[in-house]
Amino acid sequence: MTQTWIILGATSSMARAYAREMAEAGATLVLAARDIDEARRMVPDLTARGAAEASAMRFDARDPSTFGPIVDRVEAEPGEINVAVFVGSMPSQAEIDADPGLIERVTLDNFTGPAQFLARVMPVMEARASGTVVGVSSVAGDRGRIGNYVYGAAKAGFSTYLSGLRNRLTRAGGHVVTVKPGFTDTSMTWGVEGMFLVASPEKVARDIARAVKKRRNVIYTPGFWWVIMTIIKLVPERIFKKLSI
């Protein structure tokens, strides 16, 4: 059966790696991104790597008018429709403290924007009784920490949304994978202080592809982040509130 993947935020480091992974599997790719010129540059790269077809479309999590055309476009594709959500933004907590208006934008980019898009594509996926949604959340959403709790709160909201969406899509024969990457070597984290055990986007992309194949529900990537986050979640709040990790 032909497989179509809508890649939201297609020009991000992880999305690029995942799109290449899917291209080598012969999928049809719809590259949805704000930087449409860059998404267009990706098209020949992905066809050279084996994509059945690739096309670029404008997508802006903050502009719902960009959502409809993408949904219409994939409705015309036969076979299985899949969505991978790589959009997001991570201003530093200091920038957010200086401009609280950013809270709304961070929420829009990481949670409510992609959620609105998914709400529109859901009926198509349900009608086909197949397909997978990959939602890239973050370990930062597992517990609020002083360093990035607005970003963390948006990702926590997105994780909870994905959990509910899984509940819904499972009934129709589809599936949702929640991905919680640890520190990944992307353009978003380039030059950010205090990173350790950094994974490459290619490693994360391979882990996601495997999780989709095995219909996993929630994955940490690399896997050892499950251990780290389990410990962090176990620290009692009366101690946690005094830590700066």
């Binding site: 480091s13 860059e38 540059r41 380039w190």
Partner: peptide
Amino acid sequence: LARPERAAD
């Protein structure tokens, strides 16, 4: 060091 990923960058 900068490490651009997009032609525009």
